[in-house]
Design a protein around this nucleic acid. Sequence first.
DNA 1: TCTTAATAGTAGCGAGTCGAAACTATTGCA
DNA 2: TGCAATAGTTTCGACTCGCTACTATTAAGA
Lengths: 183, 183
Amino acid sequence: MSEHKNSQVIRDLIDRLSRLNAAEDWNGPLNPSQFAALSYLARANRFSRAPSHVAEYLVTTRGTASQTLKALARKGLICESRSETDKRSIRYDVTDLGKDMMKAPSGLANVIDDLPDEIVNGLTGSLKTLVREILKTRKGRSFGLCRTCAHHRKRGNEAYCKLLDVPLAPADANEICHEHIAA
Amino acid sequence: MSEHKNSQVIRDLIDRLSRLNAAEDWNGPLNPSQFAALSYLARANRFSRAPSHVAEYLVTTRGTASQTLKALARKGLICESRSETDKRSIRYDVTDLGKDMMKAPSGLANVIDDLPDEIVNGLTGSLKTLVREILKTRKGRSFGLCRTCAHHRKRGNEAYCKLLDVPLAPADANEICHEHIAA
DNA sequence: TCTTAATAGTAGCGAGTCGAAACTATTGCA
DNA sequence: TGCAATAGTTTCGACTCGCTACTATTAAGA
């Protein structure tokens, strides 16, 4: 019998796994936070690519996120585009160079790909549950895919968002939205 | 159907989970790395508490680990004790104050404790597999419990380590060892 | 034995993250 | 019109990070 609680073991495994994963990033041109921010921007729809959204997704402050995004822009991986309706807002778009950066191989991904589907599905489900429950206690946003959102509507062939009251391009619906509410 | 690979989803969930977990640490007197180092020292046996062991466990360099340990020592959470047989070596012991620090509640631990045993066991197994496989490709040490090691022997009531050729106290056997090899 | 290589730990560098607080510029509301 | 809320930035100090260079000690080989 182990004298350590299961929760302590799992907490430790997650930390160890993310450190092993992060150690790979350090070898490249991006540090782990920059990589995570770029990865988010590459998967977020046009309503969800502002510094404040990145900050909430990465569980950090707007100040820190701002610096990380400036660093990515300096490296030419993202470019800012200002809004016309709200002059305070900024939206960052991933450049072609930035998209290439996402194709880098990952040791963790390779290991996961070799796992049986059954294990992968179970793991995905468990991790999603953990994230969902923690977000619930923190009152954090879920950042799910647009098309799985309660505000997502079909109007004939066209999809639109009931919350923002705008038509959605097919690409939008398959991306992360900061306004996402589980259907 | 999702256009994102499972491996990408899991990688993202692990990163998000560790960020949510780390965000809690920042509110306390210790940052995530310091907490991780202290947690390791509190669970490692007397053969495994040197700076170089902490460095390998945390997947970082000796230089970085050295600084983190100095910070913990400055705060009175660990204290160094030099070896007599090898004057180069240092072993850090966790003080009572440091042990108290480990009792802090954790949001992630609370969520895990509420999960059904079945899910928890599956998750633990999957995460262990991922860590093991990644360590295999990196040729990293497993840092398992002493008593589950191939070098662990029973001699009557007494346990001893075949590799280091020393008798083991009951406490040693239930702690993490850097020399651990799966039995 | 003497020399050389390996090992253990540290110090300093530059880049960057981290939270926190102070700040500017807009926008929304009453 | 005024005032609060919002979006983003800047600066600060503490710290992590890889890296390189360094000291001290121990081990191995000629």
